[in-house]
Design a protein around this nucleic acid. Structure first.
Lengths: 194, 194, 194, 194
DNA sequence: GATGAATGAGCGTTCATTCAT
DNA sequence: AATGAATGAACGCTCATTCAT
């Protein structure tokens, strides 16, 4: 019973994600979600109090997916430098491969996030903590003591986040190659990491 | 008389800017703008052909203000290094002081911007060209030849843009000091400029 | 349940028909239809995709009713002359008895009809083809070969259509008796049929 | 002074007619009329109480123009038969050459014509009286006494009006030649006139 | 638990009309 | 007499949400 329940719940989330990525936030309607999911419109409201809650669940899921995806790739390597580089590349890759997803995860305004439950924010922060951890591994390997790993990881994040949002908003000059742009930013971020 | 006219026009622009940052693009409506401005719905259409044109006017105004502000500060210095640093600081400063402008200038969806008039885009690009110019001054001073000044300027922009959008979306950890965050990013951007 | 559904659908169609003849196409609005029907505005859109589809459904209904009515009466007679006469009388009768149908069936602007589905047009043409058929029966009976039955049927239709539209627009002089007017036109149409 | 006044008034009427014929009744707005006329929006209201009155004036003008045009052509001939034929051809010609004009003259619903001044209707009827007159000439020439000339003229009018409205609504089958259609109807109307 | 018909506020936009100048 | 800025009701349509079944 509870399995069936959560099946429908997951279907709705899946459909919402697909529609979001495919057609964008603005043309995402509860009716379209219901139709595509194959359930009745009212059924969605059995699992999600309202549209906001549904979106928040999706955001939550997004953070989890992104974290697992990046963690998995990063853990295929031992060397902190390589791990950091892989992190950066995977992070940017996730962003530009899931534009609408990334958008609701990071660009929604605080006012509109007000109802977003505080405890879910914790999950969102794990990805950033991953950078901190890698930086500390790096410091340890180099025999340095790093006190501001949080600051440093936010600094790296700023670059990566900047690249993604510039690309998502299609603001990169056509004369600049997208991959070169990404690699340049990652290169600088890694080089000046500590 | 003409003063009154442009008063209403400017009132509408001001209201729109405020509403934008407060409630976001998606819940910005012509009605809300009219109500908050204190004029009739139809009155907006006397000054702006449609919602797109209104938004575009706001964007245009934003780019002009930002460019003049930054250019003015940058030109108070001679040394390319200092000019680059000032540019970065002023750019970030503009972003976090004018969230409403910054949001519509750089975060608006591509599909909305498709209709943005080409000649206004030219104005929008001037700020970025300013970085390129400073980088070339810097290269000249150091006797280096720089071929990818455009790529390098976009790379710097990515960092600055990243900082601003993280701050605007209130995603910075409370334990990290905002100014330290900004200065760290600027420092790295300037140091790894060429 | 399904009865209730189609009740509302039919109510909407009925209201639309009444409003159309009362206030004309130009002042027909979805809101007025909803109010008069006693349902919410959005409800109309549950049954009709948009205003055009609603109107087209009404047109379709009209053509069907007219065709069945006329065919039924015509088929009560064998003699081509009588069949033609009956056709004419029934056609005019339908027009003046169902002004709301007739107006949208035949007076709607071409630009509106462009979107009228092709397959519905076929149904619309059946009534006219009925004249052609009767004319050919008539020719056969008289041993004549008729090559322009289409032209001739349109010529008859012009007279009948003219009578109806003059009456619907109330342009007939009060000194002229309506029935005498109708009978005179029908008499001439039949007499000069071939 | 009064000359100047009536100049503007006439300009407005001219513009309205042009816009009506060019873009149709539905896209005819007071503002467009003012712009095209080159006067202020408010100025129109100095000469026409409201849009209805303006349209009615235009209809009035239309009836007058049509009457003069047809009368002029008809009077170039002596023979009643020829005069009748010319009348028919000119009438149809006026209708299909001025579709939107013809439409507001003859297809506006009685309810929407309610405010149309009764005395203006008299002018509208003169064209029909012209048919009556020709029919009486014809009767006199043939030495017949005709008592129902009004009825007969309405019968002819029905055919002509039918042809025009079928053509204006684009309801003629593509396989039927438009001129042949017109000529056939006129031929029958003339032949069975008395 | 599941349905989907029904609601009604909201959207961007148009336009006849008014009225202070 | 002439202006045109301002109004606000109305348009077709969408959509999150409710609720009787």
């Amino acid at each position: 019973m509870s399995l069936v329940q959560s099946d429908i719940r997951q279907s709705i989330l899946d459909t919402t994600r697909v529609l979001l990525v495919k057609f964008g936030y603005n043309s995402l309607s509860m009716r379209k979600i219901a139709n595509k999911t194959g359930c009745a419109l009212g059924t969605i409201y059995l699992y999600f109090e309202n549209k906001d809650v549904l979106i928040h669940s999706l955001i939550d899921e997004g953070f989890e997916k992104m974290y697992q995806l990046i963690l998995n790739k990063v853990n295929q390597y031992q060397e902190p430098e390589k791990r950091l580089e892989i992190f950066c590349r995977q992070y940017v890759n996730f962003g530009i491969s899931n534009p609408e997803y990334y958008e609701i995860m990071y660009l929604l305004h605080p006012e509109r996030m007000n109802r977003y439950p505080k405890d879910k924010f914790r999950r969102a922060r794990r990805t950033l903590e991953l950078i901190s951890n890698i930086l500390e591994e790096l410091a340890e390997k180099r025999g340095i003591i790093i006190k501001d790993s949080k600051l440093q990881s936010y600094s790296i994040w700023a670059s990566l986040h900047g690249v993604i949002t510039i690309l998502l908003a299609r603001r990169l000059d056509k004369k600049v190659d997208q991959n070169e742009f990404i690699e340049t930013v990652i290169h600088k971020a890694v080089r000046s990491a500590i």
